[in-house]
Design a protein around this nucleic acid. Structure first.
Lengths: 142, 142
DNA sequence: TTGTCAATATCACAAAATGTGGTAAAGTAG
DNA sequence: CTACTTTACCACATTTTGTGATATTGACAA
């Protein structure tokens, strides 16, 4: 299942002008005009095919549309986006580095994150039962 | 420029069957067949409009395709996906129910999951430093 | 082997979405 | 006001998708 994650990370998402317009709020006329003016650069997957707009271009369109309302700078927005992705990466790392066991019994799911580093002999186990979550230490049983 | 981030985070990206096929590697025939079998559920933004596939559906398609490529039947793939989503839900629940703190200092990110239920007075803290992950107990400091 | 079913491919036609060039209208700066 | 920028709108061609029908392929049981 590892390559699912790899694939999702490398998704080269792009979309047509309709979806682009729906998401960004810019009209198709605007998008085409901004392209003519050299501000954005759609791509084509195949010769003769329709234009497609990448996520990067999407972002640019949103920013262009909002530029008049000068709140944060673009750099500031980049900062905050970075933090967001840092948080997501943290959880991804925790799972990939520490997940020892994952079991479902009845309506309980147990996540084992392995030995507590400064309390040897004990594993850290998280039990979820519906919305109820318990963080527990459990004596090692090798 | 705050709404740029809000918009990016809440991007309700969806795509047509062509882009979906290009990204996932599944043929349009497969995608339509899997829909007919009830494994995936495209949406329509507007009555009479074309079908659109969300990122969540994309993920599902990629997973199904992997199982199929591995030789599983479609029915079996459906079974296994259910378990997969149960696992994902588990982590989502853990985060939403137990996440107390999340801090970045230098190159260390600390995740605090709150008190260890059967070791009162101690919090469970997970420290990540790059790929290095430590699961630690830490005396409560109220 | 034959028959059956799951899974995918292919085809034809209708409908939806997009590309493009042209023109009009609205807004803006001089 | 005039010139220029920006956006809307329209028509027609092309591309993309939806859908139902039919064919093909492979696995498996009788």
């Amino acid at each position: 299942m590892d390559n699912v994650i790899m694939k999702l990370k490398s998704l080269n998402i792009s979309m047509g002008i309709g979806e682009t317009s729906r998401i960004t709020g810019a009209t198709t006329t605007q998008i085409r005009y901004w392209e003519k003016k050299g501000l954005i650069h759609p791509i084509r997957h195949e010769e003769g095919g329709n234009k497609r707009y990448s996520l990067k271009t999407l972002t640019k369109i949103i920013i262009i549309k909002n530029f008049i309302d000068d709140g944060y700078t673009l750099a500031k927005a980049g900062e905050m986006i970075k933090t967001h992705y840092q948080d997501v990466d943290t959880f991804r790392t925790i799972v990939s580095q520490r997940l020892v066991g994952l079991s479902h019994t009845d309506n309980v799911t147990r996540v084992n994150l392995g030995e507590i580093d400064n309390d040897p002999g004990f594993d850290l186990v998280i039990e979820t039962r519906g919305q109820d979550v318990k963080v527990l230490k459990r004596a090692r049983q090798d």
